[in-house]
Design a protein around this nucleic acid. Structure first.
Lengths: 243, 243
DNA sequence: CGCCAGGTTGATTTCGCTCAAGCAATGTGG
DNA sequence: CCACATTGCTTGAGCGAAATCAACCTGGCG
């Protein structure tokens, strides 16, 4: 609802840490100046919506700090979390590139700082600097690979296996310790959002967690998870593995 | 195994009908000459494999005539058809762009003519002509949108609804008649491949077909399907629709 | 304090998979 | 030309995984 006050700290694209990890690293000084002038910074509280599925796509969003989730809803109201986005990511670029309305919603999961870039500016930059387009090409192609992988997994793997896979993915970003096979991590998501990540009901998520605990694969307490042996987790995904 | 004889008819990129529908329409005369010189034409019989999942990706394939399927297999041997490709499509570009091994296999479903373009040539062209990159960007972005749609559908829709959706997609390409709501189409796929398209077992496909017939939604005979009313099919996907 | 969203648990049902058999069309070798 | 594999499709019976429905519990928070 109420917009947060615009950044008290001066934000500029030249010193932006996220930029260097993003597609925009392809830009030169002059282009950066254009970027910097065009951007509109905005702070979001957790749970705010950056754009809605179905909204016309007027540009892209540069994700500077925080955490956001991409949610997709179908005609019956079923929704899943397509994925999480992190600082350095660009949001809404897919819809922008094909000139469609947004195919998913983006909402903040933690306090976030996100810049908006209007379509005209992005188009200018794309036309002006071919390297930028190639950067995006890389990103989209990687995303597409991940999406295809996920299609396969969603129809072939059990809930348990998909959840194990999710834990492994989250581990790479959130694991706090990693001595031998053991590791722990703080989940960035509530149960129901974990469920939405693999397209299941919250009840089923509860039961899956219980099962993994009973089998000694992982232990849950609030948002923290302890995994005694990564290999056990891996074996959930490839049953006949020779680990 | 045995390679078919190379095209008896002279194939060249200048007059290639498929090219104009493909990303390569962005190329000028000079670049086309390069393309034409680099390409290796090959004819395939039905069921031949163009590239295997896991193979190193040495370039891309330009699909001139025929029909091919993209198949993805997981560690347990479960496989699904990611999709079908048609003349004008470029195959294997995703793996090529991110520099990975092929993430899926491509196999011909009908006799096909497909040109191979080595990676070096494609890289040269991409660097030389920014518009080509933007064309690919469009393509990948569109594909990504479709893939995300499919992820959602695969976890939220029933087999029946997914099959209805598949029929509607095939209709757009293969429908033979379309008076009022009625239409007929020749399926380009065997039952087991239809099943693989939506990630189910052949047995389940049989039963789904039977159900739709019992409910008067669609009638199957060999590879031909008759649908008396498209709206019935649409309603399968959005139950609470107000059609 | 009562309320409420998020989470857990249990009972039941439904959907799709597995396993197994049978069948028709096609091909193959003797 | 016939006996026989092979392949694709269908059908049935039983099972298991996940959804659904419903209750209840918990920890904030006004």
């Amino acid at each position: 609802m109420a917009a947060c006050n615009t950044s008290s700290i001066r934000r500029d694209c030249f010193t932006c840490q996220s930029r260097e990890r993003a597609e925009w690293c392809a830009l030169n000084k002059e282009e950066l100046r254009l970027l910097d002038k065009a951007k509109v910074v905005r702070e979001y509280r957790p749970g705010e919506v950056i754009f809605h599925q179905g909204d016309p796509c007027r540009g892209v969003h540069c994700f500077e700090t925080g955490m956001v989730g991409l949610r997709k809803i179908d005609a019956d109201g079923n929704s899943i979390l397509l994925g999480l986005a992190y600082p350095g990511d660009t949001l809404g670029y897919r819809s922008f590139l094909v000139g469609e309305d947004h195919g998913a919603s983006a909402e903040t999961l933690k306090p976030s700082t996100i810049c908006f870039l209007d379509g005209a500016t992005v188009r200018t930059l794309l036309k002006h600097n071919p390297a930028l387009g190639l950067q995006f090409l890389q990103t989209v192609a990687r995303e597409l690979g991940a999406a295809e992988e996920r299609i396969l997994q969603s129809v072939t793997l059990s809930v348990r296996a998909r959840f194990a896979h999710l834990l492994l993915v989250l581990k790479d970003r959130y694991a706090t310790s990693g001595k031998d096979g053991r590791f722990e991590l703080e989940l960035p998501l509530a149960r129901q959002d974990l469920a939405a990540m693999i397209g299941i009901r919250p009840e089923t998520m509860s039961r899956a967690i219980k099962q993994l605990e009973e089998d000694g694969v992982a232990y849950f307490s609030g948002r923290s998870v302890a995994v005694p042996d990564v290999k056990r987790l891996l074996r959930e995904i490839e049953p006949e593995s020779y680990l």
